[in-house]
Simulated scan of single mutants.
Amino acid sequence: MAEAAFHLICGSTGAGKSTYAQALASDLGGLHFAIDRWMVTLFWQDSPQPIEFDWTMARIDRCEAMIFETAKQAVSIGVPAILDLGFTKSAHRQKFAKLAAEAQIPVVLHVLDVPVEERWARVEGRNANKGDTYAMEVDRSMFDFVETMWELPDAVEMNALNGLLVRA
Rank of each mutant, 00 (worst) to 15 (best):
F53V: 15
A2R: 11
W38F: 14
A100T: 00
L28R: 00
I105C: 04
V156E: 05
L8N: 01
D132H: 12
A65M: 05
N159Q: 11
N162F: 06
A101M: 07
I51M: 10
A81S: 03
M57Y: 14
A34G: 14
L42T: 03
P115C: 09
I105H: 01
E124T: 08
Q49N: 13
D27P: 09
A100L: 03
T70F: 11
F6I: 01
A2W: 15
F68Q: 00
F43Y: 06
D139R: 02
G11L: 01
A121M: 08
S76P: 00
A58F: 10
A168R: 07
A23P: 00
R122A: 11
D46Y: 09
L164P: 04
G11T: 00
A81H: 00
R62D: 10
P80R: 02
H92G: 14
H32L: 09
A4C: 05
W150D: 03
E147N: 07
A101R: 02
V156N: 06
T148E: 08
F68C: 12
I77P: 01
V116S: 09
K89E: 10
W55P: 00
T56C: 13
T41M: 12
P106K: 02
G14Q: 01
H110M: 08
P115Q: 08
A81F: 13
W44I: 12
D144H: 05
V116W: 08
G30A: 10
H92L: 10
F143D: 03
V138E: 01
A65Q: 05
W44Y: 14
V111H: 02
E157V: 09
Q104A: 15
V79K: 03
L31I: 15
L42Y: 05
C63S: 08
A4H: 01
V156C: 07
K95S: 14
G131E: 12
V166C: 13
V107R: 00
D132Y: 12
F43N: 02
V146Y: 07
N127D: 07
G125H: 04
L42F: 10
N127Y: 07
I82C: 03
V166D: 05
H92R: 12
Q45C: 14
T148V: 09
T133S: 15
R122Q: 10
N127Q: 04
Y20Q: 01
L8R: 02
F43I: 02
M136C: 12
V79R: 03
V114I: 06
F68V: 11
L42V: 06
A103M: 07
K98C: 09
E3D: 08
I105Y: 04
L152Q: 12
S26R: 07
L152N: 09
L83I: 14
Q22D: 08
D27R: 15
A65I: 11
L28V: 04
L112T: 08
E157L: 13
Y134F: 10
V123M: 00
T88N: 04
S90F: 08
S76G: 15
E3I: 14
N127C: 06
W150Y: 14
A58T: 14
A101E: 08
S90K: 05
I67H: 01
A23L: 07
M136G: 13
